[in-house]
Amino acid sequence: MTVDNGIQTVQEEKAEEQTDMADATKIVYLTTQNCKFSNTDGNMLAVQVEEQEHPVVYVHCSFPHTNRRNYLSIRTIDNKEIGIIKSLDDFPPDIIALLEKHLELRYFAPEISKVIGIKEEYGYSFWDTETTAGSCRFTVHSGRTNVRLVTEKKLLITDVDGNRFLIQDIEQLSDKEYRMVEMCM
């Protein structure tokens, strides 16, 4: 394999690589000063960062379970990061509402407010619940990590299709509910 290994070229390239590296490790923080979010007519999220327009972007949470309002990564469909929002609360209310709407779109998981019944049979547990999105009945595989605590109190339940449901605080469950849920953990 013949490659031009001239010292000068290499040095130049090295210098270039270093700036590349510096760029790669540098996080772009999005603030009210340097970016402008908007909702497109097609209900998509758009952002203008300084001079550059990004017509369609998506909001990813860096810590979806432990911290929903901080470190939000704004990314393109090709998973390229446009920048990070350090704290949602630094933005004006209308932008907060917009970003929250898009967060909800991405991380939709009904919160279980009441466990009506859990029946364990044939290697599955059949859940009957009341959630923030209405009553939901779904099936979970037993014996895997489909019902697990993602924080001290927050329980994430993943059904056979991968749909997600949350119990925000297992300590808030009634004794009866807790007894049923516990058997699936």
Binding site: M44, V56, L105, F108, A109, D161, N163
Partner: peptide, 24 residues
């Protein structure tokens, strides 16, 4: 578009538009 545990149908004509979403 793959969301977390669901999908978003995006239609592109003059601009991109989210037309519907479905569970996994």
């Amino acid at each position: 578009v793959n969301l977390v545990a669901s999908g978003l149908v995006v239609l592109k004509s003059t601009e991109e538009r989210a037309i519907a979403a479905f569970t996994n």
